[in-house]
């Protein structure tokens, strides 16, 4: 859609090797966004993470993964949140334009516009938008990227609370830092920066020590998702005019042929003698 330069927009660099799993980000997110606590049980989902999934009350959470390293049990983590794509699928499919990629970086949701069709939930490759299933007239809920804090000159709540792993700043600088870290410690990191190209580039980029799919990262296309629908939708005006025009032409030709045939018959009638016409 928009060909805006995203390099100066704010992005999260999340270095999962530095994450301690303290879940300060989860708490800070709940506090800043005033989200209700969820009544959960331990081990209700896969592994140690709690709550079991992101929901209307949980915009971000830390996923845990056990693995063995040198005979020792170790934990690896993955912070799940909205990826704030450079060209967001949710914004492209929303019929009322309730999602917007802001110039500051976060993708925000305008609840006053939303009609609740849930197309954003189908479209999002990361499964981020969640629905208020408990309500009669539900809305969509998702990470705001703390747009209000960012416009006020603060950093997002999770980035502020995180003691180790999250760096927040212009996207090109974040990518530079990530590349430097990978180059400096090739033994520590997987040689991939997740989010640099995924879904056409996102404003949340990750570094890990374990393969991304093992941590629960979704394998997504590198093309911006709106392109997939736009390659069909761009033909809409042409299709309308082609079908309308060709059917109009076709019926005009057919009606004209009928008219000429009738006229010819009438003319033949005129040619016949008057006494026959009277009958």
């Amino acid at each position: 859609m928009s060909k805006v330069d995203t390099s100066k927009q704010n992005a999260f660099l999340i270095d999962m090797t530095k994450c301690t799993g303290c879940r300060g980000c989860q708490v800070a997110c709940k506090q800043w966004n005033q989200l209700e606590a969820e009544n959960t049980e331990f081990f209700s989902g896969e592994g140690y993470q709690n709550p079991p999934a992101m929901s209307e009350y949980t915009f971000t959470r830390i996923k845990f993964r056990d693995y063995e390293k040198n005979g020792q049990n170790e934990f690896a983590f993955y912070k799940e949140m909205c990826m704030h794509c450079d060209d967001p699928a949710c914004a492209s499919v929303c019929p009322v334009g309730a999602f917007e990629k802001t110039p500051e970086g976060p993708v925000i949701y305008k609840a006053d516009r939303c009609i609740g069709c849930r197309f954003c939930m189908i479209a999002c490759p990361f499964g981020v938008p969640k629905y208020e299933w408990s309500k009669g007239l539900p809305l969509v809920k998702k990470c705001t990227g703390c747009h209000d804090r960012v416009t006020a000159g603060l950093q997002p709540a999770c980035a502020t609370a995180c003691p180790t792993a999250i760096t927040y700043g212009p996207r090109d600088e974040m990518i530079k830092i990530a590349e430097e870290r990978v180059a400096k410690h090739p033994d520590k990191y997987i040689r991939k920066i997740y989010g640099k190209e995924e879904a056409g580039g996102t404003s949340v980029i990750y570094l890990t020590s374990l393969p991304f799919d093992e941590l629960g990262f979704k394998k997504v296309t590198l093309r911006p998702l709106p392109e997939y629908t736009w390659q069909a939708l761009r033909f809409v005006p042409a299709a309308f005019l082609t079908v309308g025009g060709s059917l109009s032409a076709l019926s005009w030709i057919n009606h004209r042929r009928d008219r000429l045939k009738n006229e010819q018959e009438d003319a033949e009638q005129v040619d016949t003698p008057a006494d026959e016409k009277e009958d």
């Binding site: 492209s92 499919v93 009322v96 334009g97 516009r113 197309f119 069909a232 939708l233």
Partner: peptide, 13 residues
Amino acid sequence: HVLRYWNLHSPMF
């Protein structure tokens, strides 16, 4: 709202 806020990029619109 579909009539008010047009999003030409949306198949749903």
